[in-house]
Design a protein around this nucleic acid. Structure first.
Length: 259
DNA sequence: CTCTGTTTAGCGGTCT
DNA sequence: AGACCGCTAAACAGAG
């Protein structure tokens, strides 16, 4: 049987929705999140169809990113400045595709009003953290640090967010998010100081932790959490589906070792 | 100025 | 038939 070429769709439009294509791009990245330009690049690299009429489909793709709750915009890490934010998949959207099929979603992923508010609050806090971090780096007097909110430290929202980064070239020691982590004051100094010894279990803030992975490479995350396992399962399904549907067109890195 | 992100609107296809 | 999904166009604002 002839091996299908990497570009077996040629100039034909691939049978994947923009949501699927975006999910592929995001999940093909080591950190499970990408800036918009990298999402474009992923799609154009693998599907020649999308090398034309870029204005049209990129507009649609941006519309999808904004419109669908399944995509979460994560502020850039402070030491990696650039245009635009990073985009990731909301972990609660893992089961959005039937049996891992990327062809059509089972149902639209929609966050409840409260969930959305919580998420937005956390993301706003992260953005504030970034600003404070940058101000601190610049030696400027730091603006008032963002205050901790209940949602930043408690489920259900933040405990489900943030796919687990598989590998971070610049942060090789990081493996997993902890299940038990001491609660820390949400101040620049507290967040940047070395990890205190672990004491009693406390709910982690996974959204913060996701960026902590970006910002604080010295932290050693060791314990998998349920959402990490869910993310790994989802990735395995995605890989299987992608391997079946796309074959060499869609070349992902090897799946995470499932604990 | 270009790119990124948000929002609204409309249309056609599919599902229930 | 109505709800839902996906695609496209377009206007607009803000950031880099």
């Amino acid at each position: 049987m002839p091996r299908p070429s990497r570009e077996s769709y040629g100039d034909q439009k691939p049978p994947y929705s923009y949501i699927s294509l975006t999910a592929m791009a995001i999940w093909s990245s080591p950190e499970r999140m990408l800036p918009l330009s990298e999402i474009y690049r992923f799609i154009m690299d693998r599907f020649p169809y999308y090398r034309r009429n870029t204005q049209r489909w990129q507009n649609s793709l941006r519309h999808n990113l904004s419109f669908n709750d399944c995509f979460v915009k994560v502020p850039r890490r402070p030491d990696r400045p650039g245009k635009g934010a990073y985009w990731t998949l909301h972990p609660q959207a893992f089961d959005m595709f039937e049996n891992g099929s990327l062809l059509r979603r089972r149902k639209r992923f929609k966050l409840q009003k409260g969930e959305k508010d919580n998420l937005n609050a956390e993301l706003a806090a992260l953005a504030s953290f970034n600003r404070a971090f940058l101000a601190r780096q610049a030696g400027a007097p730091p603006p008032p640090p963002p205050l901790p909110t209940a949602s930043m430290y408690s489920p259900p929202m933040c405990s489900q967010l943030s796919p687990e980064p598989a590998e971070l070239p610049e942060t090789a020691s990081i493996t997993m998010l902890p299940r038990e982590r001491p609660r820390r004051a949400f101040t620049i100094d507290a967040l940047l100081e070395p990890e205190p010894p672990r004491a009693s279990p406390s709910p982690p803030n996974h959204l913060l932790a996701m960026q902590a992975v970006q910002v604080m490479p010295q932290i050693d995350f060791t314990m998998p959490s349920p959402y990490v396992l869910a993310a790994q399962r989802y990735q395995a399904e995605l890989l299987q589906a992608a391997a079946h549907a796309l074959r060499p067109c869609y070349l992902l890195p090897p799946p995470l070792p499932v604990a």
